[in-house]
Design a protein around this nucleic acid. Structure first.
Lengths: 108, 108
DNA sequence: AACATTAATCGTAATCTTACGATTAATGTC
DNA sequence: GACATTAATCGTAAGATTACGATTAATGTT
């Protein structure tokens, strides 16, 4: 065992889980907050800000990229990481869809 | 290595990550959706609905409980699992706080 | 061309997660 | 009290995640 039964769940469930999973680490929250507050950013700037090594930050950025939250534009020898605004808004929509589907108490 | 450096991040970052991490598995999304759509629910009902064993569902429910999204009220030999509405709304607020902090493009 | 800078990737180790079956604990029913 | 039902917990196996240092690849600078 030890492997998630993704194929047993719906595409929508997997999609939402992929996004929230990417958000499920404090370092990745910190990276996103940094990208938002300091505008356009290089991996090196994030490494300077966070208590993690360059390779670890690079790995977290890859997670965020796989979830679609972030995109990286090559800029010379650097890569400029930015929030993918379209995906960002869509992701919030998916999350709000889940939270908003609760209308009243689920039990009394 | 192999262990998240939680203490290096803020309490708020860890709190948000705990919630999103709990949401980061399709089975747990499915469980929450089931609790919402079918109102008050027992673990056994969830087991019948999902392609997972009783012990695995129990484990996922524990994850959701640790994140505070769900609470379990003992009802005879059963446990009635419900969305913790207060925590639910607070969680959405935290997530919206992150998403809403993006005002414009992070890079051009 | 030689060198510096930047970030991805590789290799590795520790730990966590996911999943299951089996067992146990708690409650209710006969 | 014996038995059934419900769900937690235990034990275990496979695999994923987190983290690091070292290396590599790509680009820019001298």
């Amino acid at each position: 065992m030890g492997l998630t039964k993704r194929e047993e769940f719906t595409k929508a469930q997997n999609e939402l889980a992929l996004i929230t999973k990417a958000l499920g680490h404090p370092a990745r929250i910190a990276i996103l907050q940094f990208l938002i507050k300091s505008k356009s950013c290089y991996c090196g700037d994030i490494v300077d800000e966070l208590p993690l090594s360059q390779s670890t930050v690079s790995q977290h950025l890859l997670e965020l990229k796989k979830a679609g939250l972030v995109k990286g534009d090559i800029d010379g020898p650097s890569v400029c990481y930015c929030i993918d605004e379209k995906a960002w808004n869509k992701s919030l929509g998916l999350i709000q869809g889940l939270f908003g589907s609760l209308k009243g108490p689920t039990c009394s």
